[in-house]
């Protein structure tokens, strides 16, 4: 085989490899797109029966079709809460699919950040009461208004606060602090709950991650919350970090830029 033939052979192999690579890349993108479409359709189809369960149980709980005794009330309330968890899981799956499709839409506007935190706490009141938790929210003297997608940031705060609450023991204390540093708003959420094992912390923001100690402690949860949370914060131009010590608690810090326009 002469030099020219060797070059031609190498060129042929190289072209075939490029072809294979492009084919696989295209196949992977198609597969990804099909998976996302499937999730979008499946979540919509799942929401309908979940709505019928939610609406009918709520009507019974409200006494619209007759009075319930305490045992019936308690059992149905648990059924209602379980259904709410499935609705949350479906929403999380849809959010993840949208993030991966790069179709997670944002609508930025100017908001008072303290009010958003108050709303998030308000939405978690049932959990706070149920676990006798204490929330210490140290508001700064004057926090600036910032440009955010309010519903997405509410989702972030609800995810982080719900984690802090779910993985706290009864009578736990959750501290929320806001600081301003270098044109960034820093939000700290600290709990004295079960913490995350050190050797698992690197996987925290991966999809479906659930810490081993949490699995023993509490089995509910999709493991999608932190993946979605990180994505939303980074889309706002911020960062998130987590410090945790098993048995002592967890501190989450995330930043959001203070901008005069989005």
């Amino acid at each position: 085989m002469n030099f020219y033939e060797i070059i031609m052979l190498l060129f042929g192999i190289f072209s075939a490899l490029i072809g294979c690579f492009l084919y696989l890349k295209n196949y992977k993108n198609k597969l990804k797109q099909q998976t996302s479409e499937f999730i979008s359709i499946a979540t919509h189809q799942l929401r309908t029966p979940l709505t019928t369960i939610k609406w009918s149980i709520k009507m019974i709980l409200d006494g619209d079709v007759g009075k319930l005794n305490q045992e019936q009330q308690e059992l149905l309330s648990k059924g209602y809460q379980s259904n709410e968890r499935v609705i949350k899981l479906v929403n999380d799956l849809l959010d993840v699919s949208r993030i991966e499709e790069k179709k997670f839409d944002y609508q930025f506007d100017k908001y008072d950040f303290e009010n958003i935190i108050d709303t998030a706490i308000e939405r978690l009141q049932n959990l706070i009461i149920k676990k006798h938790l204490k929330i210490k929210f140290n508001k700064p003297i004057k926090s600036p208004k910032i440009y955010v997608d309010k519903e997405k940031i509410l989702l972030v705060l609800q995810n982080l606060l719900a984690n802090a609450m779910n993985y706290s023991t009864e009578n736990g204390i959750i501290k929320i602090d806001i600081k301003i540093k270098n044109k960034f708003l820093l939000i700290y959420i600290k709990d004295n709950g079960v913490g995350i094992p050190k050797n698992e912390q690197f996987k925290l923001f991966s999809k479906f991650f659930r810490a081993s100690n949490i699995m023993k402690f509490k089995t509910q949860g999709s493991g999608l919350g932190l993946f979605i949370t990180k994505n939303i914060i980074e889309k706002h131009g911020g960062r998130i970090s987590i410090k945790s010590q098993e048995g002592k608690g967890t501190e989450v810090c995330f930043s959001l830029p203070i901008l005069s326009s989005p």
Partner: peptide
């Protein structure tokens, strides 16, 4: 179009 959802909603509003 969902029969059960329509039934629940109608029941609530009629009441």
């Amino acid at each position: 179009d969902d029969n059960f959802l329509r039934e629940i909603c109608t029941k609530k509003l009629t009441k």
